Simulated scan of single mutants.
Amino acid sequence: MLLSPDQELVALFGQAFSPDEVELLDRPCGRGAIEHLFNDPPDLLVVDQKLDDIPGLDLVAMVKSENVYRQMPVALVMDEAALAARDIDWCATEVDELLTRPLDAVMLRARVSLTLARASRSLDANPLTKLPGNTSIIGRIQELIDRKEDFALAYADLDYFKSFNDKYGFSRGDEILMMTARIIVNTVRAVGGQKAFVGHVGGDDFVFILPPDRVEDACKAVVASFDDIVPHFYDAEDRERGFIQSTDREGNRRSFPLMAISIAVVFNRNGRLTHYGEASQTAMTLKKKAKENPRSCYVLDRRQY
Rank of each mutant, 00 (worst) to 15 (best):
Q15M: 07
L3F: 06
I209F: 02
R241D: 09
D48Y: 10
R272T: 11
A75E: 03
D248E: 02
K162V: 02
L123V: 12
D150C: 14
L37P: 13
K130F: 14
L3C: 13
G56P: 12
I88W: 02
G193Q: 05
L98G: 04
R101I: 14
M1T: 04
L258C: 04
F38I: 04
P294I: 00
T187M: 04
A190R: 14
S122C: 06
V10W: 05
D157C: 05
G277D: 11
V198P: 03
G169E: 07
A119S: 15
Y276K: 00
G277K: 13
R172S: 14
A190M: 07
D52A: 15
D157L: 06
D104Q: 02
M179C: 15
G133R: 00
L83V: 00
D96L: 11
R302C: 04
Q71E: 11
N270Y: 15
G133V: 02
R172F: 12
L210Q: 12
L59V: 15
L9D: 10
S120V: 03
F267I: 09
A154W: 11
S136D: 10
T100F: 04
P73T: 10
S122R: 13
D79H: 12
V188S: 02
F226I: 09
C91K: 12
D174K: 01
I183H: 11
K130S: 15
D53I: 03
M178A: 08
N126H: 15
L98Y: 00
V265F: 03
P211E: 01
D6E: 01
T180W: 03
D96M: 12
N67K: 09
F197Q: 07
S296L: 05
Y168T: 09
L57T: 09
N165C: 07
P211F: 08
V191S: 01
M284K: 14
V112Y: 09
D6H: 06
T100K: 00
D235T: 08
P132W: 00
Q245M: 08
Q49T: 01
G169M: 03
V46T: 08
R241V: 09
N67T: 05
V230L: 07
Q7P: 00
D159T: 04
F17G: 10
S296G: 04
Y155H: 13
I263T: 02
G173R: 13
S225I: 01
S4K: 03
G203S: 10
L286Y: 10
D87S: 08
L144W: 03
Q245N: 04
P73M: 02
T100E: 08
D20A: 14
A260D: 10
A283V: 15
H275R: 08
R140C: 01
L153K: 05
A156V: 03
R101A: 11
V46F: 05
K148P: 11
E237C: 08
V185C: 10
V22S: 06
D20H: 02
L76R: 05
P28V: 05
N270L: 12
L114F: 07
P127I: 12
A264R: 01
N165W: 10
Y69H: 13
A85S: 10
I145N: 01
P257Y: 02
G202M: 07
E292P: 08
P211D: 11
V63A: 04
T129C: 04
A156C: 13
D228M: 08
F151H: 02
Q142C: 00
S122M: 11
D205Y: 02
I244Q: 00
K64W: 08
E240G: 10
D166W: 12
I138S: 09
S120G: 05
T129A: 09
E23A: 15
D89M: 04
L99R: 07
A110I: 12
